[in-house]
Nucleic acid binder design. Structure first.
Lengths: 191, 191
DNA sequence: CGTTAGTTTGAGAGGACTCAAAGTCTGTGG
DNA sequence: CCACAGACTTTGAGTCCTCTCAAACTAACG
């Protein structure tokens, strides 16, 4: 729990009152490998902060599993649209490794936003950071070759490289597993 | 100015005090066709809300102009990374049509966020909306064919279709002008 | 009316995809 | 501890699609 509070404290000051409320409102979770944090076609009720472990968000596209994102230590994960709008969507979230996480419901979050100006700020800052991160990914997807996409992925997710199977990375990058395998083969031949 | 206030009021209540501060802090602008709202390799000092007209954000990639986004009536435009972090970046913003806009500096914005909890909320809500919108674009770019990308663009930007030259749309979608031209030709042959 | 930017059309090359099969790794149960 | 089943990864061959390059055509603007 302290790690979670520390994370928030990086962005906004934590008053004693806020800490007390956070302790009250925050749920803690343990997920085993392959366990679902959120099931497809249901409303995503919580937003998770990953303290330890690794999760991915994905959906089923005509029978193919398409990975849409990852979150590891110190990162947030939720099915954003479903969570914020309170509607079901096609995404599911599953643990790739055994995972410890903390979470808020939308109700918690709205309460925190209402009662604490600094939490509203925290929310804004997190959203901004996510937005900018996503912009970079978008640019990397638009014009670049598979090799460049993978290169960009390596620099952004270096610590995760060994923890993710090839197929998930490929679909995250929007290329086929075969192509990514060939990209890797060529890279190792050079270096 | 009233239109701008109305826009904000869609998200948060406007107290008399807030309205007074907004009137004080908001700058209004007129831009002629092709005029720059922001120049590449400089710090983007303002965030603009477009009341009338149409602007685009773009950058120079090895001599090619790549369009990264558009904003028309009731939309926001800024070079987000540069504006928020206070560093120069490669983006430029130019008016495609004569444009009326309102703007805040980062200083204005931070002041508004500090003094008015509801403005902090407004900022958070705008960022969330932008994030979700960008997510959809990202998915459309990842796996789909040029025809599907254009289809998605048409549904998202229907009102802008006639106002944007083909080349800008093509680079926004990450395809070549030739390919987009052929996509359009095929579409009109069918319908 | 002429110049220039923008769009369309065509031909050809390259690269990523699909399909298929072989090879490797992981986890489970004997 | 080993053997097996299933999932994942690699490798190969062939096809299709998009890009590149080039030229003709059109529209916009002075």
């Amino acid at each position: 729990m302290q790690a979670f509070l520390d994370h928030i404290a990086q962005f906004v000051p934590l008053s004693a009152e806020l800490v007390a409320t956070l302790r009250q409102r925050t749920q803690s979770h343990q997920f085993g490998k392959h366990e679902l944090l959120h099931q497809a076609d249901t409303i995503c009720r919580r937003t998770y902060w990953i303290q330890r472990g690794l999760v991915r968000i994905y959906f089923n596209q005509d029978g193919k599993i398409v990975t849409d994102g990852f979150a590891a230590e110190n990162e947030w994960m939720t099915s954003a649209y479903s969570f914020m709008r309170g509607v079901p969507d096609a995404y599911a979230i599953a643990a790739i490794e055994p995972t410890e996480a903390y979470s808020w419901s939308l109700e918690d979050l709205l309460y925190l936003f209402d009662q604490f100006h600094e939490m509203e700020r925290f929310g804004r800052m997190i959203m901004s950071a996510q937005f900018i991160q996503q912009s970079e990914r978008l640019n990397s997807l638009r014009f670049t070759s598979p090799a460049q996409k993978y290169q960009h992925f390596c620099t952004c997710y270096q610590p995760l490289l060994g923890r993710l199977p090839l197929g998930m990375i490929a679909s995250y990058l929007g290329i086929t597993p075969e192509t990514l395998s060939r990209v890797r083969a060529k890279r190792s031949r050079i270096s």
